[in-house]
Amino acid sequence: MAGRGQVVLQKSSDQVGVDSPTRTAKLERLVDVHYAPVLRLLTRLTGSVSAGEELTQLTFTGLLQSWRELGGESAERAYVMRSAYNAWRHSQRTRDAQTVDCKALERLPAQDPGALDFVCSREDLERVYASLLDMPDNHRAALVLIVLEGLSYREAAELMAVPRDTVAKWRLRAVARLRQALSNGHRAHAETG
């Protein structure tokens, strides 16, 4: 076909390229093993799955450039999680103002107290969520790593590259802030009615 509308076809080999089966297999294993924990960590740190997914992608594409073989699963996991944490730290330096998206909590059943072993109102959840996103990054990270990720103070300190006592101090301040948010809410609720 001639003229303006002519389609320039590409050979399929130009689109697919030459694969590197070994490297691809290694990367896919890396994703299989570490994608979920990295996404969970970054979702917890950012407060939203969407932001967590973006940083997860950044983390793994960064690993593509810097990856080196490490001895043992725990060393590999530590390296990947450290990379994820650093990606989050970097994003915090360049981020726009953080927004609290309480729609993230919309999956809460309307009335299902039996689902929990303690009564937890939507207001409490929103207060904790908002307070979590509002607190300083270091405090939130310490809280997330210790309470949600289940790391010891020492492991959290290594990941954050700060002394153990510093992590303990941040964790203390974070929990104080959340307690304050909950008790303020209960006090306001009692006063109004």
Binding site: L105, D117, Y129, V147, V175, L182
Partner: peptide
């Protein structure tokens, strides 16, 4: 109170966390 904070936090985490499908 700290227990309550932690459990509320865990519940928030469950709600905002990604599902298996995602």
């Amino acid at each position: 109170a700290m227990d309550r904070v932690d459990r509320t936090l865990v519940e928030v985490d469950r709600l905002i966390g990604p599902g298996a499908e995602r």
